[in-house]
Amino acid sequence: MKPVSFRYFAPRTVDQALELLATHGGEGKILAGGQSLVPAMNFRLARPASLIDINRIDSLDYVREDGGELRIGALARHARFEGPVAGGALGAFLPRVARHIGHLPIRTRGTFCGSIAHADPASEWCLLAATLDAGFLVVSRRGRRNVRPNEYFVGALTTILEPDELLTEIRLPLLGEDWRTGFAEFSRRAGDFALAMCAAFLRFEDDRIVEARIGLGGATDRPSRIAAAEALLTGSEGAPDIFREAGNIAAETIDPLEDIHASAEYRRDLVRAMVARALDQASAR
């Protein structure tokens, strides 16, 4: 289980990285945390001819609040989100999600943006980005573009990123204190990939839900929001029964993945439970 040979580049600046990507991106890969890429290389499932290691680009290592958004640079590692990085409902929410990502040594190396670029269906950060309609800042020597989740995620491990492009930043809305949040995930063992998970965001006014965002991950080829369930909740007081109903709607809406760990039927069962639990959690806060 040793990888095939590759050429190694360690650019110091984004410009250098983009130049390298323009030349080598086609048969190469960007190496950030490497916690998904390197196992695939060790199995020789991934065989990039070049690796462009962005770990030396210090300017990409940041998490900061700016204009009501949390801006996350391409080198911000998962472990950073286990502690406080921002205020507001989002700031309180991030550590609760971060601890579900792999294990401590994985979180030490793996990056937020790397997860988004890899687009594993079971990625917690992909779910979060999709649910909160994050902004994805993508740059190349051809220019820069700001992409939204609904066009960014194409399928399992597939995004609109072109070979010469680098995802440099994710922007998440900070969410005011009137948002309440919930997160529920099911995996077989601690740290395993989610078989299903739900991120729920509810904004209450006068004890009524005036805005709802319900995102699902792990169960389908890409993270998605469940519009019908969000519509059901909006205007309600958010009682357990309606949360169950939202779970049922979500389960019926999706086209689940199937693998050795979970059939489509079982993933629907899990979605039902995870949606209801995430909503219970959100309403309890």
Binding site: R188, R189, A190, G191, D192, F193, I260, H261
Partner: peptide, 10 residues
């Protein structure tokens, strides 16, 4: 990741 040897959590 697919053959599930349990961890301390299980």
């Amino acid at each position: 990741a697919d053959y599930l040897v349990p961890t301390m959590a299980e």
